[in-house]
Amino acid sequence: MRSSLSTVAYLASVASAARFMLHMPATQLVNPSTLPSATHATLQSSGPPQDAYITRSNSFNFNNVSTGSYLATVHCRDYAFEPLRIDVTVEETVEGSGEKKEMIRAWQTFIGNEWDNKGEGRGEGGNGLVVEVKPLGQKNYYQERGGFSPLSFLKNPMILMALFSMVLIFGMPYLMENMDPETKAEFEEMQKKGVMGSGTTNTAQQIQNFDLASWMAGKTDSSSRGASPAPQSKKRG
């Protein structure tokens, strides 16, 4: 890497002015002719970035680009675009011939990754190279307001629970009445034994004596401390 760095530094001293174009093709996702005129592309390397605004032919023209490695970004109000790495170098056309010309190479690049971690190539060539830029997706600035619909209302778990208990309250008496006498007697026996009853009263009591403050404080000790004052107060009341 160090050697390549020094070559870059050496090449930078050679005066060069490369010229290339970022072009936005019409795709199914985006019709580039509808983009606002403030859409522009920047080339960042060192110092103020070079700026190119969108042209009538949906491209960004960069002229007089000196050698170096650039981060190219397309800024648009409506769409997000992938960032590119564009390297401009001066190379000999035929090795040993001494004739030099600018070479432009473009790759995909990733934000938050090493600069050498290049993605797919996006073009390579001499002056006048056309690099296509691809939109990643449309920008959606707005948040949808959750509108009211009866279905979403019914999907609410609270409503479902309420409906279920309604069914129980209204449906149970009919069920009981329609039961044959034997099962009915059996059921009443079960209720007296307290298979269903005792459990429920206990949990109800627990809920009543629930100590919010200690729960918030993260106390996990047994219910003896938390619940003990509560029955007293109940007696007093």
């Binding site: 890497m1 760095l5 870059v8 960042q44 390397s45 060192s46 170096g68 490695s69 650039y70 981060l71 960032p83 790495r85 690049t109 934000i111 938050g112 990754n113 090493e114 600069w115 050498d116």
Partner: peptide
Amino acid sequence: IDSASATTARG
């Protein structure tokens, strides 16, 4: 980030 620090991430 300056372009001279080419090994690290840019931007």
